[in-house]
Design a protein around this nucleic acid. Structure first.
Lengths: 303, 303
DNA sequence: TTCCGATGCGTACAGTGTACGCGCCCTTGA
DNA sequence: TCAAGGGCGCGTACACTGTACGCATCGGAA
């Protein structure tokens, strides 16, 4: 779905050619680029293909469409229209993913829910990958951190972690979509990082260590969230909740215990109270406490 | 891909009917079930569909195929043949996922790499989901924990975590496939849990807390691994490594800094040494230290 | 009138997982 | 000897995915 094509597509070839001409100065700012009809003729393609090429350059900000007469090379500024429709697409996509899981989010399904023809979506969005990125960004925009923040780095990190966790609880699919290593696609994440950096500002850590702590805390939260998502998805797919599942597996555990294998595993299982169920929120809190206890040691040491 | 069908498939209907007859005792152990031809006639389906039904029951261990004369109801024991071919399928699947990422692992591609017709795979494996489960189990079987273990819970947990991390490094796709909440599909995971439980045996924690610590440590490791996988996959898809990517984003960061937004974020970025690259293994070690420092507090408190 | 660009949407393609059915072959009981 | 048994191997087909491409049309400017 996001594989780099080995040979560029026709419209990409056209766009690349034009981009090169702009970059090289052959087409200066304000100059008119060939019309879609002209491009279609010289490249021997349909007019819409040429239009698509121009359109993609417009979206990049390389060109500007002048409804008056022709398309010209841009100097500044990109068009901000269609933002409304983009927002609607993303909002419905999030609703779908929340309801039925990420695997149930298809372009066709999305179009159906929006009551628009399938291909109309591509007028507002480049690809499904872009939809996912926009969804993640929109979800992260919901991060509402207290302002002013509580006092002390620990209280602040605790707050930030809980807020992030709540977002993952609300949007389980997010765990599969967010990646720390490519943050730029999600401008709203930067505000979060900034908040965390402020929390650590009073400590004596250097920039590298601050960044590390942020990434580590995030990794823990995402690790919890991934399993949360897996569970949610499994229930949606099979209709079997963890409870039923555990019951169905009890026999297997008993067999293992009876076989004398995995003695410590069996001992732990015996130790669990009857009808024990893991409460994931409580688990999160425990983990957060442990993580921050560990951070406290790190900060004390490094300070 | 793993959606529960609303109405059972023909071969499933047949299988269910037979299973009910076995369960109810209408067909006692050792009794012969109708032949595929007979089933095909009475159910008005092709012989192969009937065969498929029988075959699936054989795989479940409900029936036993007697090459002599007909299929009979099983008393004990399942057939262990074809284990070799299953292993081969899984081994190649793992190799493919290691090389090109999970998204490049398709049934058709797998069949091609094995030089067998596509549908032959389904002779050894029920579905792609099963392949993924088997892959995960096989990967986890590589977990080779020291025996005898090091002394002290901390050294042991450190060792276990590092071994798990190495598996994730070797098989990045694993991070997307493993779930703690459904462990039974992966018998090899139980040995790992057992090892961890032994590590915690000397502590005064109760069963619930032991289980919690295990899950928390795992969540942290998996959280790291998920991001590792995302990075690996992104490089495979786009050919753009993190380094190139960061360079291309530098302008964006500078712009944000210049705009006076996200002051603490910008400050942290300024603080980073020139050409700073996150070393994920070092990051993991830092996180592990922090996590175990936190566990130490928990254990001291609870003890 | 003629050309421009933009818009909207249908068609089509290459890909996915996998259910189903045909046909062959070997074994075996009658 | 010979049907009928079962197994195996494989091809075909279906429902589904994302999305490139192309046709038809429209409003406006030259």
């Amino acid at each position: 779905m996001s594989r780099a094509p080995l040979s560029p597509l026709p419209y990409q070839r056209i766009a690349d050619s034009l981009r090169r001409q702009v970059d090289s100065g052959a087409l200066p700012a304000g100059a008119r680029v060939p019309s879609t009809r002209a491009l279609a003729r010289t490249w021997k393609v349909a007019t819409a293909t040429a239009a698509h090429a121009l359109q993609s350059l417009v979206r990049e900000g390389v060109l500007v469409a002048r409804p008056r007469s022709g398309t010209v090379v841009a100097g500044r500024r990109a068009n901000a229209t269609a933002a409304l429709s983009r927002a609607r697409v993303v909002a419905i996509a999030i609703a779908m993913a929340d309801d039925e899981g990420l695997s149930a989010l298809s372009i066709r399904g999305l179009a159906a829910r929006l009551c628009v023809p399938v291909m109309s979506l591509y007028r507002h969005v480049r690809s499904k990958d872009e939809i996912l990125a926009l969804m993640a960004d929109a979800a992260l925009a919901e991060l509402s951190l207290d302002e002013p923040p509580p006092r002390g780095w620990r209280a602040q990190l605790e707050h930030a972690a809980r807020v992030e966790w709540q977002i993952f609880r609300k949007h389980p699919w997010l765990a599969r979509v967010v990646h720390i290593s490519r943050p730029s696609a999600m401008p709203n994440a930067m505000g979060y990082v900034n908040w965390v950096m402020r929390a650590l500002d009073a400590t004596s850590l250097d920039g590298v260590d601050k960044l590390r702590l942020h990434v580590l805390l995030h990794a823990f939260i995402q690790g919890m969230a991934v399993n949360l998502e897996a569970e949610t998805q499994a229930i949606a797919d099979t209709g079997i909740g963890e409870e039923d599942y555990m019951r169905s597996q009890a026999a297997r555990y008993d067999a293992v215990a009876a076989a004398g294998q995995f003695l410590f595993f069996a001992k732990m299982m015996r130790d669990l109270p009857e009808e024990f169920r893991i409460d994931i929120d409580e688990l999160f809190e425990r983990g957060l406490t442990a993580m921050l206890d560990g951070f406290a040691v790190t900060i004390r040491r490094g300070g």
